[in-house]
């Protein structure tokens, strides 16, 4: 589904990603961990097509297609979804209006008509229920005044609505209380199938107790320096990153 080879990316001439290799197959869950500032969010932004980041070398292939030249919205239309670490506010635009626009723009890209209002409402209701989101919440301005946890839950609500092929969850667990973490993780698990894939970026094991990864990668200084199974996350939780840094720097 996703194949990244030797990816180098920089922002304002500062190299941040320095040769990433990553392959994600349908049905898989990959976890990416790593110290602050190692490039995790940068990697997700580059996959999603953020203009600020310049790819200086390497390739990103999504479903057999090189997507490096595609605009962010075109990648979204092909099924790439990013749950933002820091979701932005759009004052005056309600959650409902925003997601409605997103759904219809995605449909338009596929040559489909707007979704009938009735179906839209039904879908919204269904997904809001899945994530235990209060209906009143949906008429609030997007992310404006949302608590940290509300923002993250709203990201996953949008993911549930859009049903992407590849979902990248950038620290979706940060800010969630224990119950919310369980609800959100259950939501993600329910949406999982053998045809889609998830990349989970996190600092903590607790999310991975719920969303169990097939692979765990450690990103350090813009490179994946270690990969393993789910037990690697446990090891990191126990020992921190120093031993990895030592291995790399040795």
């Amino acid at each position: 589904m996703l194949k990244i080879e030797n990816l180098h990316a920089s922002v304002e001439d500062k190299a941040i990603l320095r040769g990433i290799n990553l392959e994600v197959k349908p049905g898989e869950v990959h976890a990416i961990m790593g110290p602050n500032g190692s490039g995790k969010s940068t990697l997700s932004s580059v996959i999603a097509g953020k203009e600020e980041y310049e790819v200086t070398d390497g390739t990103i292939v999504f479903n057999e297609e090189d997507i490096n030249e595609l605009a962010a919205e075109e990648r979204a239309h092909k099924g790439v979804f990013l749950s933002f670490q820091y979701p932005v506010e759009i004052p005056g635009v309600s959650v409902t209006n925003f997601i409605k626009t997103a759904i219809n723009e995605n449909r338009k890209a596929k040559g489909l008509e707007d979704m009938p209002a009735k179906d839209m409402l039904k879908l919204i209701r269904e997904k809001a229920e899945l994530l235990e989101i209060d209906r009143k919440f949906l008429s609030r301005s997007l992310n404006e005044g949302f608590s940290g946890g509300e923002k993250k839950r709203n990201e996953i609500f949008q993911m549930a609505m859009l049903e992407p092929k590849l979902a990248i969850l950038d620290e979706t667990d940060s800010g969630l209380d224990i119950d919310a973490l369980r609800i959100v993780a259950n939501g993600v698990n329910k949406l999982k199938s053998k045809d889609n894939a998830v990349i989970v970026i996190t600092h903590y094991q607790r999310l991975l107790d719920h969303i169990v990864p097939d692979f765990v990668h450690v990103l350090y200084n813009g490179k994946i320096v270690k990969s393993g199974g789910k037990e690697l996350a446990h090891e990191l939780e126990e020992k921190g990153y120093d031993w990895i840094k030592e291995e790399v720097d040795a």
């Binding site: 919205e73 932005v88 759009i90 997103a102």
Partner: peptide, 27 residues
């Protein structure tokens, strides 16, 4: 730019994103 990228990431092109943001601003 972050607002526009957020919209783009959800499949909303820049023109539509601006319209959406302006509408929200004027609501």
């Amino acid at each position: 730019e972050d607002q526009i990228f957020y919209c783009n990431q959800r499949g909303i092109d820049t023109e539509k994103a601006i319209a959406l943001i302006v509408n929200g601003f004027s609501k």
